[in-house]
Structure formats: structure tokens, C-alpha cells
């Protein structure tokens, strides 16, 4: 057969094209019933916890009592866990951290060295020295 599929070519799955599925699946709010650093967290849990859960139906919200500093922990579909320590934080600041955890993709943080990163090839194509006007072409 002259034409064959090259089976080693991998395909990519792009979350957000056609549909978007929230990568964050679970958020754990850990607090201590005694410690002073959990004061803000305790206030948040008393007042806002139902609202937080209702606003995020796609995320399982778990409240955990454990001694130590309070943390906000996100569990992601790719298996990663992101923990943020929220000791001595006001409820408003903890809400901010919850939204950071919720909106994260769960990927490891890394440095982007290029201005544009894309999975798609350039629409314009790569510039070619052989397709400029023959007059301006550089000849070796």
C-alpha cells in the first residue's frame, strides 16, 4: 500500500475548545478549632461556606478540622494537589485564595520564556528567504 498512516504521531487534547471541563475537582478547607491563626477561616466557615459550595457546583468542597495553621487545598483532574497556607488571613483574603485555587489548571508553575506559546501552527507560515522577490534574494 502506498499510503499508510504514521501511527507514532500523537494527538493533543485541548480543554476549552468545544467544551471546557473545570480541572479543579475538590477543595479542602482545613481549620483549627483552637489556634489564633484560624480565626479568619473559622469566621469564613461560619458565614460563607454554604455560599461557596453553592457557587461552585462542579467542585467538591470539604471542611476538615485539624490542628495547625489553616490551609486551602485544591485537588486537580491531573492528579496534582495545590496547597495554600492562609494563617492569620482575613475572610476576604481567604476567598481570594480559594478563587486562585479554583481557577488554577493544576499544572506545575513554570517560567514562560517566549511571548507566544501555541499548539497551533502559524497562519502566516514561516518566513522563507527563497520566496522573496528574486531581485532582493541573497545568493551564495
Amino acid at each position: 500500500m502506498p499510503v499508510q498512516p504514521a501511527k507514532f504521531i500523537q494527538s493533543t487534547f485541548r480543554n476549552g475548545v468545544g467544551s471546557f471541563v473545570q480541572p479543579c475537582t475538590k477543595i479542602v478547607l482545613r481549620y483549627c478549632n483552637w489556634g489564633g491563626s484560624s480565626r479568619g477561616m473559622r469566621k469564613l466557615l461560619n458565614e460563607n461556606i454554604r455560599q461557596i459550595a453553592a457557587e461552585n457546583p462542579e467542585i467538591e468542597v470539604v471542611v476538615q478540622k485539624k490542628s495547625g495553621h489553616p490551609i486551602v487545598q485544591g485537588f486537580y483532574a491531573n492528579g496534582n494537589i495545590k496547597s495554600v497556607c492562609v494563617r492569620n488571613y482575613e475572610p476576604s483574603k481567604i476567598l481570594e485564595k480559594i478563587s486562585v485555587v479554583r481557577n488554577s489548571s493544576g499544572e506545575k508553575l513554570r517560567k514562560y520564556n517566549r511571548a507566544v506559546e501555541s499548539k497551533n501552527e502559524s497562519v502566516r507560515g514561516i518566513w522563507s528567504p527563497f520566496h522573496v522577490d528574486a531581485e532582493h534574494r541573497y545568493r551564495i
Binding site: P2, V3, Q4, P5, A6, K7, I9, S11, T12, F13, R14, N15, G16, V17, G18, S19, V21, K119, N120
Partner: peptide, 21 residues
């Protein structure tokens, strides 16, 4: 099927066609 399984997947068809002659 289109929204969740077909559209998000990207397969470079140009590179999977292998021509021997």
C-alpha cells in the same frame, strides 16, 4: 460527542499521511 470528544482533540492530519513512493 462533538463538543466533548471530537472538537477538543487536535490531530495533525498532514503529518499522519505517510507516502512511500
Amino acid at each position: 460527542i462533538h463538543q466533548y470528544l471530537i472538537k477538543p482533540r487536535k490531530l495533525d492530519l498532514q503529518s499522519i499521511i505517510s507516502i512511500s513512493r
